Computed example of a mutant assay.
Amino acid sequence: MRRLGLLVLLAACTARPEPVAVTRDLSRPVYSIAGFDAARLSGDWVQVAGFGDCAGGRLQVGARVAYDLCLASGRAAGEAQATGVPGRFETQDGGLWVLWADADNRTLVIGAPDGRIGAVLNRGADISPDRLTAARDILSFNGYDVERLRAY
């Protein structure tokens, strides 16, 4: 009985993992852009909207994809590796999928199936209202709670 009490006490003291900040309805499908062309989207992108309370971040698309983003769980930075499926990358923070890019390569929406990543990026810090609305629609279509989306 004494051992059982000790085990219960130890289990109560065990650190529990931090909950993951999820910004989308995981029962809804999420779609990456089938016609992703890394060359078309190469260069620097500024995060103009997201689900976190930190300042917007950046994404750089080139020979590699580097990110420093404000997410619902806080700041996340690292490199993304291509998965072999167009528009889909893996990071230490989970999947990073390109959900949409406007026809003129000015605005980009990224997300993740697990809901950890969700952001709107633009070639510059200023985004037009119509492209921000389109980006919100893409996030909503992919199950994101756009009521929680905030512009930076």
Rank of each mutant, 00 (worst) to 15 (best):
A63S: 15
V98H: 00
R2P: 00
P86N: 09
D137M: 06
L7Q: 09
A103H: 07
R58N: 11
R106L: 10
R148N: 01
G78S: 03
V120C: 05
L71D: 01
G78K: 06
V61N: 01
A101M: 12
V22R: 12
A66E: 14
A34Q: 07
A80T: 01
L132M: 06
D137V: 03
R106Y: 05
A112F: 11
G62W: 07
Q47N: 08
V65A: 13
P17I: 02
T14A: 12
G94S: 02
V22K: 09
D37E: 09
N122S: 13
N142R: 02
R3T: 15
A49I: 01
R16T: 09
F141L: 04
R106K: 12
G124N: 15
S140P: 03
A66Y: 10
N142V: 01
G124H: 13
L7D: 09
G87N: 03
T83S: 11
L4T: 14
P19R: 06
M1T: 15
V46T: 12
D53N: 01
G95S: 13
V30R: 01
L121M: 13
S32P: 06
L6P: 09
D44V: 04
L99I: 05
G43S: 05
P19F: 08
G115D: 06
G87L: 01
A135N: 04
L149V: 04
G78M: 05
V20D: 14
G84Q: 03
G35N: 14
L6H: 14
Y31I: 07
R16I: 08
A77I: 10
I117H: 05
L149C: 05
A39C: 13
A112N: 09
Q47D: 04
D114Q: 02
I117N: 04
R106E: 13
P86G: 09
R75F: 13
V120P: 00
E90Q: 14
P29M: 10
G62D: 14
A38C: 12
G52S: 05
R123N: 11
R3V: 15
F141Y: 10
E90M: 14
V22F: 11
A72F: 05
S42C: 07
G50K: 03
G111K: 00
G52M: 02
W100K: 01
C13M: 15
A82I: 06
R40L: 08
P86F: 04
P113Q: 05
L10N: 07
N142M: 04
W97E: 13
W45I: 03
A72H: 07
Y144T: 06
G57W: 07
L9M: 08
L10S: 08
E147I: 01
V85W: 11
G43K: 09
R131P: 00
A63N: 15
S27P: 08
D44M: 11
C13Q: 15
V8R: 06
P113T: 07
Q92L: 14
A119R: 01
P113K: 06
L121K: 03
L139R: 08
G52N: 03
R64C: 07
E18S: 12
R75V: 12
T14R: 10
E18F: 14
F36S: 06
G52T: 00
G57N: 10
A38E: 14
G52C: 04
W97T: 02
Q81H: 04
S32D: 14
A80E: 01
R136L: 06
